[in-house]
Amino acid sequence: MEQGISLSEALKNGLKQSLKVIIKIIKIMVPVYIIAQLLDYYEILAQISVYLEPLMRWFGLPGSAAIVLLLANGINIYAGIGALGALSLTSKQITILAIMVTTSHSLIIETAILKTIQIPRWFHLLFRIGMMLVLGFVLNLVWRS
């Protein structure tokens, strides 16, 4: 392993490494972020959530909570939480929603990020969305309030 590396050398190494990672992340994030924002601006995301009402019953959540899942998954966790303020949910519902959202969110960006460490897109998407749905369903089933 590296022996006797001085602190200033470590600092230089760290800055060099950061620059590389930052350039990589900017290349991915800038186009993706703008596209996701466009989808939100033209209300395409809002239109899709109407169709998700029946699905949300499986998790003990109202149909409107689909907006949180959609925004969190389509844009990021902050977008999802922004919509959360408009809903009135019980603490059980918010806890289930929190576990679902923190399990699967920012899919466009995080799929691209995980692609940089060679995690296939299809695997990441299936795994995240699948685990989110299973967790929501099981928690609602097990949790008797």
């Binding site: 590296e2 600092l11 760290g14 950061s18 994030m29």
Partner: peptide, 23 residues
Amino acid sequence: MMLLKIIVIITLILVTIEVLKAL
């Protein structure tokens, strides 16, 4: 704002890691 936040955090973390490694 997001990029600025990411740049600051990544730089802090990666530099910290290198320093921790050296130590």
